[in-house]
Computed example of a mutant assay.
Amino acid sequence: MLIGYIRPSIVDPNGTSQREKLTTLGCELFFEENHSSPKKRVELKNMMNTLKQGDKLIINRLSTLADSTRHLVELFEMIGKKGANLYCIQEDLDTSKEAGYSFQSVLKHIVDFQSDLISERTKQGLSEAKKKGVSTGRPRKPDENVARAIDMYQSNQYTLAQIKEATGISKSTLYRYLEQ
């Protein structure tokens, strides 16, 4: 049986894109998480309990399935012990093919997997911060300091070092404001 596993992400918050891809590949049964959090993944447990000999689990990308490299290895072992296989669309990884992967390919996928997890968690954190009204990125310099730095620069009485010391405005920031 072809089994699809879906977990929301920042890029695909409703899992719609994942469901379309898995449906196209002929998945007959779906397990879909309601959240992207690594905790309380009820559908992952249900899916792992449902897997039987000869089943093929299909996912969009490795980061959909696991939350760390260790977790990924554990899931691969569990899937193998059940006699099932895994097909990952994004990485084009199919454990049912006997050709296998070279060590370099496997290593590349692990590195990409780690990068995807970091990127996903960063995007999720930024999204949650924005929802709470927290401004992200480097804090802006107070406008009065910028105005004071511009006045000091235009007076031709101060060096850039003195302006920076007095206002905290760097040379590049000052020039950026002067160009506006």
Rank of each mutant, 00 (worst) to 15 (best):
M1T: 00
M1S: 04
L2V: 00
I3H: 01
Y5A: 05
Y5N: 02
R7D: 08
P8D: 06
P8K: 08
S9K: 00
D12F: 09
D12R: 08
P13V: 14
G15E: 05
T16R: 06
Q18H: 02
Q18M: 07
E20D: 07
L22F: 09
T23K: 10
T23G: 04
T23E: 08
T24H: 15
G26D: 05
G26I: 05
C27S: 09
E28F: 03
F30Q: 00
E32L: 04
E33R: 00
E33A: 02
N34R: 12
P38R: 08
K39E: 14
R41H: 08
M47L: 14
M47A: 03
M48R: 02
N49P: 04
N49H: 13
K52P: 01
K52Q: 06
G54T: 02
G54R: 00
D55P: 09
K56V: 09
I58A: 00
I59G: 03
I59L: 02
N60Q: 13
S63T: 13
S68N: 03
T69P: 04
R70Y: 05
R70N: 11
H71A: 09
H71E: 02
V73W: 02
E74K: 11
L75G: 05
F76D: 07
M78E: 15
M78P: 12
I79H: 00
L86Y: 06
C88I: 03
Q90N: 14
E91R: 01
S96F: 12
E98Y: 14
Q104C: 07
V106C: 13
K108V: 07
H109E: 11
F113P: 02
S115W: 07
S115P: 11
S115R: 11
I118K: 09
E120S: 15
R121D: 15
T122A: 14
T122G: 06
G125E: 12
L126S: 07
L126F: 04
S127I: 02
A129D: 05
A129R: 11
K131C: 04
V134G: 11
V134T: 11
S135A: 08
G137E: 00
R138S: 15
R140C: 14
R140Y: 10
D143H: 10
N145K: 13
N145Q: 11
A147S: 13
A147E: 01
R148V: 07
D151V: 10
M152T: 09
Q157F: 09
T159A: 03
A161Y: 13
I163E: 02
K164W: 15
E165I: 12
A166Y: 09
T167S: 09
G168R: 09
I169E: 06
S170M: 03
S172Y: 07
T173F: 06
L174Y: 00
Y175I: 06
Y175M: 12
L178V: 04
L178E: 04
